[in-house]
Design a protein around this nucleic acid. Structure first.
Length: 307
DNA sequence: AAGATGTTCAACCGCGGGCCC
DNA sequence: TGGGCCCGCGGTTGAACATCT
C-alpha cells in the first residue's frame, strides 16, 4: 500500500474500522441526510461527521455515482452512445471530461459502458480497441447504426402518435423520409422524422404536429452541436476499405441486422440505407488484413442489441 | 433443475495534482 | 520549499445477475 493511501486512511486502527463493500440503506440515508443539510465536499470530515464508518473516498463515490439526485438511471440512449463514441474518439479515456457532456451520467457509467460494450465489440472483431482500425469501424458501422436506431425510435414514436391521431399511411411516410440525400454524412436526409411530421401536418394540423419531438429531441444544444461536428469528419477512411470494388457477398446483409435485433418494424433495402446515409459503398477485401470485416460485419456483431 | 460461463456495474485502489501551512 | 492533506481521475475487481448447456 502506498504512503499516500496510508495517509488517507489514517492509522491501521482507523483503517480496520472502516467499512467496505456494498452500501446499506441506512448508510445511504445517513449520507443523503448529511449532504442535504451541510452540502458536499471535505469528504473525510463529512464521513466522520455523518457517523459513517466509511472513507471519505467511498462516500464521495457513493454520492457522485449513485445517490446524487440528478443521476440518470437506465440504459444509455442511442444519442448518448453516439456522443460517447464521438467524444472518446476526440479525448480518449478522459471519462470525467466526457461525462461533463452527458448530463446525469457519471464517468464511472461511461467507463463501464466503454469497457463492457465497446471493447467487447473490439474483442469480437479481433481488433485492438484503441486502434485506428477500430475507430474507423466505430465511425463507419457503429455510429450509422446508432443513428439508424435513433431514426427508428423516432419513427416508431411518430408512427404511434399518428396512429393514435388517425394520420395517414406510415409506410409512405417512412419511404419519403428516407428518400433525400443529406449533407450530414451519417444522417439520412434532413432528420426524417421531422419531415415525416411535416408531411402529416400538411394533410392535417401543422400546429398540432409542431409540438412533437424529432430524433434529437433529447439532445441539448451543446450535445447537438457536438453531434454536428461528426458531420465534418470524413465518412469512411480509405485505409479500412480498399478501393477495389466488387460484388460483395455480404452486402445483402451488412448494415442490416440479420437477426433483426432491435430492428422490428424496419424493413429497408440495405443499399437504400447506405445511400440515404451517404456512406460510400466501400469495397470489401476478400483477402488480407480486412478479412475480419467479412467474417464479422455481416454477422450478428455490431447489432443493435449490444448498443 | 442445476452448475458453468458470461456480463454488468458498484465499489475499490493507486496515483497525480492542487492547495494550504 | 516541502510536507501533509484532500480531491478527482482512470484502471481494476468482484458480487450479483443473466444466459447457456
Amino acid at each position: 500500500m502506498s504512503i499516500s493511501t496510508k495517509r488517507e486512511l489514517g492509522s491501521n486502527e482507523e483503517e480496520s474500522e472502516l467499512r467496505r463493500g456494498p452500501w446499506t440503506l441506512e448508510e445511504d440515508s445517513l449520507l443523503i441526510h448529511y449532504i442535504t443539510c451541510h452540502g458536499e465536499g471535505r469528504w473525510n470530515m463529512l464521513a466522520k461527521s455523518a457517523g459513517l464508518k466509511r472513507s471519505g473516498k467511498s462516500c464521495r463515490l457513493r454520492w457522485l455515482n449513485y445517490l446524487k439526485p440528478d443521476i440518470k438511471r437506465g440504459n444509455l440512449s442511442p444519442q448518448e452512445q453516439l456522443l460517447i463514441l464521438e467524444l472518446h474518439s476526440k479525448w480518449g479515456n478522459r471519462w470525467s471530461k466526457i461525462a461533463q457532456h452527458l448530463p446525469g451520467r457519471t464517468d464511472n457509467e461511461i467507463k463501464n459502458y466503454w469497457r463492457t460494450r465497446v471493447q467487447k465489440q473490439a474483442r469480437q472483431l479481433n481488433i485492438e480497441s484503441g486502434s485506428k482500425r477500430f475507430i474507423d469501424a466505430v465511425k463507419c458501422f457503429w455510429m450509422p447504426r446508432l443513428l439508424q436506431k435513433m431514426e427508428q425510435d423516432s419513427f416508431l414514436s411518430s408512427y404511434s402518435s399518428m396512429t393514435n391521431m388517425n394520420f395517414g399511411n406510415s409506410a409512405e411516410a417512412s419511404t419519403s423520409s428516407m428518400s433525400n440525400t443529406s449533407n450530414f454524412p451519417y444522417l439520412p436526409s434532413s432528420t426524417p422524422p421531422q419531415e415525416l411530421f411535416i408531411d402529416a401536418a400538411n394533410a392535417n394540423n401543422l400546429s398540432t404536429m409542431s409540438s412533437h419531438t424529432n430524433a434529437f429531441s433529447n439532445l441539448d444544444s451543446l450535445q447537438f452541436s457536438q453531434l454536428l461536428e461528426i458531420s465534418e469528419q470524413p465518412t469512411c477512411p480509405p485505409n479500412v476499405f480498399e478501393n477495389n470494388v466488387y460484388n460483395n457477398p455480404i452486402q445483402d446483409n451488412w448494415f442490416v441486422d440479420t437477426n433483426n435485433y432491435g430492428m422490428q418494424g424496419l424493413n429497408m433495402d440495405p443499399l437504400q440505407v447506405m445511400e440515404s446515409y451517404d456512406i460510400p459503398q466501400f469495397a470489401f477485401q476478400a483477402e488480407g488484413n480486412d478479412e475480419w470485416m467479412l467474417d464479422n460485419m455481416g454477422d450478428t456483431l455490431w447489432n443493435m442489441n449490444t448498443m
